[in-house]
Design a protein around this nucleic acid. Structure first.
Ligand SMILES: [Mn+2]
Ligand SMILES: [Mn+2]
Ligand SMILES: [Zn+2]
Ligand SMILES: [Zn+2]
Lengths: 147, 147
DNA sequence: TCGCAACCAGGAATGATTATTAGTTAAATA
DNA sequence: TATTTAACTAATAATCATTCCTGGTTGCGA
């Protein structure tokens, strides 16, 4: 299975002091395999296929370590569990309110927004993110359903 | 107590078919009294002062009716309960990651972002919102704490 | 090989929110 | 006005995502 783990990832583990355990590796593999924006539950289901003994809590813990050391990112829409992403580039993701699928929206940037904000609030701004929802082509016309 | 309820609000209730009950009125008053961006729990606490018999579930239900008929708005940040707002204008709110306080940021608009997004995704876009976090002036320098 | 610290499985706990249910009010009808 | 009917609400249980806790395991350096 498991393709060689990229150098950068090993490096990030080394720098952080965390160890690259088999569970953490499995979570990363699952993330790759899913080729999308899976939830912790999705990852858990995938990981369990290879190793039925992993616990959901372990997956959460692994995801949080991976995010902490900068190997993955997470995004959150209300009314949906947090989604995880291997794509570390700053980019926009849109979530289908019917089926929950998350897809990337290319060529959209925040432009001057960040600086506009900083100029208009006494807060020290630490995070600015665009949350976008819609209906995916596959769900158009269909009944409102789950997720 | 209770100042005369604005005409527009009564009208929205009339149009919707919902009745303006004392509980719903109390929730609205609490929202006014709080002069901020309270959570359902905050509203509940305020409402209970005047009428200790209201249930938290009733507050949630009242808030959802009020939002449905367009009398209030709600916004959501991850790691925090939903906040409610009497300000129906499109505007930006920033939340302090230390104390949870939410304040408005004037003079910031999405500009061409919406159309940029529509042009770059096959999804039918239904909602675009900016979620901004920071540290408020009061919390600057202090220890990271709660909420 | 021993000892320690990091890890992890399993399960309990938490926090926000929604669902259910049976009783209460209020409007509508006769 | 008495009766019917629908809307509303308190209390409480249930749900969902996520975190916390605990005792057992593992890897590794001394
Ligand atoms: Mn993405
Ligand atoms: Mn506001
Ligand atoms: Zn869809
Ligand atoms: Zn603050």
């Amino acid at each position: 299975m498991s393709v060689v783990m990229e150098k950068g990832i090993k490096e990030k583990f080394r720098m952080s002091g965390y160890t690259l355990t088999s569970q953490r590796r499995a979570v990363l593999e699952a993330l790759k395999a899913s080729k999308g924006h899976p939830s912790a539950e999705d990852v858990y289901l995938l990981v369990k296929k290879k190793n039925p003994r992993v616990a959901l809590g372990t997956v959460y813990q692994a995801l949080s370590v991976l995010e902490e050391i900068g190997v993955i990112d997470s995004k959150h829409w209300s009314e949906s569990p947090t989604r995880y992403d291997l794509n570390l580039e700053e980019h926009l993701d849109i979530r289908c309110r019917r089926c929950g699928q998350v897809s990337e929206v290319p060529n959209v940037g925040l432009g001057d927004l960040e600086s506009d904000i900083r100029r208009n609030t006494p807060y020290e701004v630490t995070r600015t993110m665009l949350v976008v929802e819609g209906v995916c082509p596959g769900c158009r016309g269909k009944e409102p359903a789950a997720r």
